[in-house]
Simulated assay, not measured.
Amino acid sequence: MPSPTALHPLFVYGTLLTGLPNHALFSLADKVTHVRGAILKRHDMYSLNDWYPVIVEAGGGEEAEAAEVRGEVMYFAEEHYTSILMRLDELESYHGPSSNSNMYIRAEGKVTLTSPPVPLAAAAKLSSLETPQEKEGEEIQVYYYRWNRPLDPQYFKRIESGDWKEHIDAIQRKTSKQQDGIAGTAARRDCGH
Score class of each variant (00 low, 15 high):
Ile182Thr: 07
Glu68Leu: 14
Asp30Cys: 08
Leu126Ala: 09
Ala107Phe: 05
Glu72Gln: 10
Val32Gln: 02
Asn102Gln: 05
Arg36Val: 01
Glu65Phe: 15
Leu113Arg: 04
Leu40Ser: 00
Thr33Cys: 07
Phe11Gln: 01
Pro53Glu: 03
Tyr13Ala: 02
Ile159Gln: 00
Ala67Ile: 04
Gly14Val: 01
Glu134Val: 06
Glu79Cys: 12
Asp89Glu: 05
Tyr52Asn: 07
Arg188Phe: 09
Gly14Ile: 01
Ser27Lys: 10
Phe156Ile: 06
Glu57Ala: 15
Ala6Ser: 15
Pro4Tyr: 07
Thr175Gly: 10
Ala29Asp: 14
Gly192Ala: 04
Lys31Trp: 06
Glu62Asp: 13
Ala183Pro: 07
Lys110Met: 10
Gln179His: 09
Asp169Asn: 13
Asp180Met: 12
His8Gln: 11
Asp180Lys: 14
Asp180His: 12
Thr131Glu: 07
Gln172Asn: 15
Leu48Trp: 10
Ala66His: 12
Pro150Cys: 06
Met45Ser: 00
Glu57Phe: 09
Val54Glu: 02
Ser127Met: 10
Leu7Ile: 12
Ala38Glu: 01
Arg70Leu: 12
His8Pro: 03
Thr82Gln: 13
Met45Ile: 03
Ala66Thr: 12
Leu28Met: 06
Ser99Ile: 00
Pro2Ala: 11
Tyr46Gln: 02
Ile55Pro: 01
Arg42Met: 07
Lys125Trp: 10
Arg106Asn: 03
Glu136Val: 09
Glu68Tyr: 10
Leu10Thr: 03
Ser161Lys: 05
Ser128Val: 09
Ile105Thr: 13
Ile39Met: 14
Val32Cys: 04
Pro21Trp: 04
Glu57Asp: 11
Ser128Arg: 08
Thr175Ser: 15
Arg70Asp: 04
Tyr104Pro: 01
Tyr94Glu: 00
Tyr143Gly: 00
Asn100His: 13
Gly37Trp: 02
Gly162Gln: 00
Val56Tyr: 03
Ser83Met: 12
Ala187Gln: 13
Met74Asn: 05
Glu130Gln: 14
Ala77Gly: 08
Ile55Tyr: 00
His193Gln: 14
Tyr143Phe: 08
Ser176Glu: 15
Lys157Leu: 11
Arg158Glu: 07
Arg146Leu: 10
His23Lys: 05
Ala170His: 09
Gly181Thr: 04
Glu139Pro: 02
Trp164Tyr: 07
Ser128Pro: 07
Met86Thr: 15
Val142Gly: 01
Asp89Asn: 04
Asp50Val: 09
Gly37Pro: 03
Leu48Cys: 10
Val12Ser: 01
Ala67Ser: 13
Ile168Glu: 03
Ala6Phe: 14
Asp30Val: 08
Thr131Gln: 07
Glu63His: 09
Ala67Leu: 04
Ile105Met: 13
Ile105Asn: 09
Ala122Met: 03
